[in-house]
């Protein structure tokens, strides 16, 4: 029963993939090769980019003078660029189909997420901000449920893309990495919800359980479990010693780099195949 259901899903995506392969050649018969740089190439939308920067910048400035938090100012600027990026995705969809458009959104979003973690890392290690302040650009989004939801979405999209043709060693490694990363966030979310329930039972509804240790890193499950204490696992650098911010920085560095490599390899292969 289960296996037939999975087969149906895979068949559905395979058909979609074949359909988009056929769509690669536009009605005019022109083939648009897609490279990884295409994903970030907003030159065709330069008018929208300029308008977005101006409007977003103005909104950010208004947020600044009205003393809104820094993350709202940053969000205004980023939101200003969304119309241009949306048109860019639509353009890719028209030229290359749903699979490429989905890949574009994932690569762009994961890159931005990676930058968020990089900013966090810089805030903590370079600027020496306190841990609770080192929350990246959109700091309000640095919440347990956001990370949990984000990683599940990335995992689902990644599965769809692999079924749809993102198939190379980097892609499989990326998929394994994403599954492990999502598992850690699921564990964190499970602990977070349980801790909130415990707090509610104690009559303390206004304290967050954000930031508890996960599998990896300092005070994580590997560091404290009787099964792994004193084992070889503790000898891997950072496995049981890195602070949470570093653990998730490296998770996302790995995820972003593998996604880029997988995308690059697949697009190169596709371009070779599609070129008449």
């Amino acid at each position: 029963m289960n296996s037939s259901f999975v087969e149906i899903i895979i068949e559905y995506f395979n058909q979609l993939f074949q359909m988009q392969q056929r769509q690669l050649a536009t009605p005019q018969g022109k083939v648009y090769p897609m490279r990884i740089s295409t994903i970030f190439d907003l030159r065709a939308e330069w008018i929208l980019v300029i308008i977005g920067v101006i409007v977003g910048g103005l909104l950010g400035f208004l947020a600044l003078i009205h003393k809104y938090p820094a993350w709202i100012q940053a969000a205004c600027v980023i939101a200003g660029l969304l119309p241009a990026f949306s048109r860019h995705v639509v353009d890719i969809y028209v030229k290359h189909g749903w699979w490429s458009a989905t890949l574009t959104m994932l690569v762009a979003a994961q890159s931005f997420h990676g930058v968020e973690h990089l900013v966090q890392w810089v805030q903590y290690h370079i600027l020496r901000w306190p841990f609770f302040r080192a929350s990246g650009i959109i700091s309000a989004a640095n919440a347990e449920w956001v990370h949990f939801g984000w990683n599940w979405i990335v995992l689902v999209i990644m599965i769809v893309l692999v079924i749809g043709g993102l198939r190379n060693p980097f892609a499989y490694l990326m998929l394994a990495w994403t599954i492990a990363h999502t598992a850690e966030h699921t564990y964190l979310m499970w602990r977070y919800i349980q801790a909130l329930q415990e707090l509610a039972a104690l009559g303390v509804p206004d304290v967050s359980a954000q930031g508890l240790p996960g599998f990896f890193g300092r005070d994580g499950w590997l560091a404290t479990s009787d099964a792994t204490r004193n084992s070889f696992v503790c000898r891997f650098p950072g496995f049981t010693t890195a602070v949470r911010l570093d653990v998730h920085f490296w998770w996302n560095v790995g995820e972003t780099v593998l996604l880029m490599l997988a995308t690059n390899m697949t697009l190169r292969q596709k371009n070779r195949t599609d070129t008449p």
Binding site: P130, A195, E198, L199, A201, L202, V207
Partner: peptide, 21 residues
């Protein structure tokens, strides 16, 4: 989680922000 829930409210009251250095 039970132990952490016991500790968190008290830690929230006592903890003060420390910089990374």
């Amino acid at each position: 989680v039970k132990t952490m829930a016991d500790w968190l409210p008290a830690m929230k009251k006592l903890a003060r922000p420390l910089t990374a250095d």
